[in-house]
Design a protein around this nucleic acid. Sequence first.
RNA 1: GCCUCAUUAGCUCAGCGGUAGAGCACUUGACUGUUAAUCAAGGGGUCCUAGGUUCGAAUCCUAGAUGGGGCGCCA
Length: 457
Amino acid sequence: MKLKQLQTEHTEKEGSNVTLEGWVRNHRPQKTFGFLDLNDGTCFETVQVVYDQTLDNFDETRKIRNGSAVRIEGEVVLTPKRPQPFEIKAHEVEVVGAADADYPIQPKRHSREFLRQKAHLRPRTNLFTAVFRIRSLLTQAIHDFFQSRGFIHLASPIITANDAEGAGEMFRVTTLDPKAPPLDDSGAVDFSQDFFGRKTNLTVSGQLHAEAFAQAFRDVYTFGPTFRAEKSHTSTHVSEFWMVEPEMAFTDLQGNMDVCEDMVRHLIRQVLKHADSELEFLDRFVENGLLRRLERVASSEFVRITHTEAVDILEQSRQTFERPFEKDFASEHEKYLLSYFDAPVFVTDWPKDTKAFYMRLNDDNETVAAVDLLAPGGGEIVGGSQREERYTMLKKRMDEMGIDTEELDWYLQLRRFGTTPHSGFGLGFERMLMYVTGVSNIRDVIPFPRTPNNCEY
RNA sequence: GCCUCAUUAGCUCAGCGGUAGAGCACUUGACUGUUAAUCAAGGGGUCCUAGGUUCGAAUCCUAGAUGGGGCGCCA
């Protein structure tokens, strides 16, 4: 039987025998009896197993160490006067796989740094049980949201030929011999002899491919892994992460923000609805006030201001900032705007030279129809835009910014064959997860994080 | 890439120029309802590495390695 099921049915099951399988989180043996805290992976909670000398293998059971895998057969006993509503009175305890004495996870707080070095064992701690249960829930919620609105999911390619679209450094994909690659006449590496007959990289974004599908299915989204080879050392960057990228034809920037706002609210509501125990734990041990913050965001209207308005607010703030804010914002500016409004804020219409080539040029010729969503406690979690759908404008912008128009001819063609005003955004999945769980380092919301100089496991 | 802080037992940390410490974990024992149980005893150390200063270095100095935090780049 699964513990999750027993949790909802323990009243009906009172007095009946059940078998549970799981891992011992903590063990409190005494002289003639003892207690095992068992987690079977099906829910956040543990169940207390009580055993005594009536067990055939009482002496062996007394010696069970934390981390051991066990099978318990016993009776469901209601315990309304104790901290837990029910427990299991064991009739049989079978050790399925004992844990050696040097099992490193103890029933106490460990540092995140230590647990990162034990990434294969950390899902057995309360914190990571909560985080990864919510991660799974959030994945489901994303698909629910888009599928229920008729969006088509597309698996955008992980290996791409797009060399650079301005999103950052890329990982090269190659089968050439690193010691003796073939060279061309000028002495440079000859990638025409590489596996795909050209230079290829891991994707930095599925957006361009999503745009192609949006011109066929209208509303589409991608949800998959993304790779950046930047040597960033921060708590919000990893080399491999997941992005959600919806793309919508016949949709302007306002419509884009409507979908984004609905999505963020939906995601938070789903977590609030289905992860009570996890959020309660996180609110207590990770971020005091997490629940209140999420509830407020789930019910509040998001603010919408232009970049020009945001700059005005910063200018009138009477606060001294270390960095200039006329063009792009640093985290200190984002924090000020968030505390000013005390709600999620969309900032739109950014100066064109701070943003990517595909964003639609506004009539002022100075700004583009870009949008960043700033969220209290999470910083920038979404970046999006209305795309430049006018062929000549796009071509001009690409030339100005030195983007290879030959390589991206297929992307330009989309503007010649039935172009539409269209928009989309990218949600950093792990950043959303940080925002929802209160966990402050992105390496602690991804199962096996990859960062510069670190690819263990 | 830049700036900072750290590295002492399996974990969390104290010690800051004079014999290597505590709590938890582990092992053993006590305990008839524990909730990160409690109590007692025991085992456990390349004080990150390499140099240097000193009668004497975990402690002071130099370099390096690894990790954390901040900034930049971004999601």
